[in-house]
Computed example of a mutant assay.
Amino acid sequence: MFEFQNLEVYKKAKKFHLESKKLLRLIPLDKIERDQLYRASFSIVLNIAEGSGRLSKKDRRNFFVISRASVFECASIFDVLHDSNEINQDTFDSFLKKADELSRILYSMIKNLEN
């Protein structure tokens, strides 16, 4: 087992991605929306894993910053999907709550790696 697989943030990010994938199977979206949400949610997971493998604090921090930016990207996608009535309020609130939690955890990790 790799060290990153034990990180709580990785487990939460992976669950967020899998739930996003499940949602993509349930609602009709155009190709661009589908692709963007898939890639953004997967980017969260992948950048946590890649950052965990970096040796310097600066390198790790950069990957966690990218991962957090992908969380923001997902939040904006869910916001647009909600405004266009492609997801309901409960689904929107659920995904936004999970995104907020990921963002907060990643922010703490980023702050801990400063200088």
Rank of each mutant, 00 (worst) to 15 (best):
V9D: 11
T91Y: 04
S67R: 06
L26C: 14
L29Y: 04
L55I: 08
L81R: 01
A75M: 14
I66C: 09
E3I: 15
L37C: 07
K22H: 13
M109R: 02
S103P: 01
F92G: 06
L46E: 13
L7I: 04
E50K: 12
K11F: 12
L96V: 01
S56G: 02
K22T: 13
G53P: 07
F4S: 06
K57Y: 03
Q5G: 09
C74G: 01
A49G: 06
A13R: 06
D30Y: 14
F95Q: 12
I66M: 11
Q5I: 05
S52I: 02
I105D: 01
L29M: 05
N62M: 10
M109P: 00
F72N: 08
K58S: 11
E73H: 02
I27R: 12
I77Q: 13
R61H: 13
K98N: 05
K14S: 06
E86K: 15
I77W: 14
S52Y: 11
A13L: 05
R25V: 11
S41H: 09
D93S: 06
A49I: 03
R104L: 10
G53F: 11
F92L: 05
N85M: 09
S41K: 08
F95H: 12
F2S: 08
D90P: 04
G51T: 01
K31L: 15
F64A: 12
R54I: 03
K31C: 12
I44M: 09
E33M: 11
E114W: 04
I32D: 15
A40K: 10
I32Y: 11
D93V: 02
N115G: 11
L113C: 01
G51Q: 01
S52W: 08
D93L: 07
A99Q: 04
N88T: 00
K22P: 04
I87N: 05
I27W: 14
A99K: 01
L55Y: 10
L24H: 09
I77E: 12
F4E: 07
L102F: 07
S43N: 02
L113N: 00
Y38N: 13
N62L: 11
L81Y: 03
F78L: 13
H17S: 11
L106N: 12
K98I: 00
L29G: 03
D79T: 03
K15I: 09
F95D: 14
K11M: 13
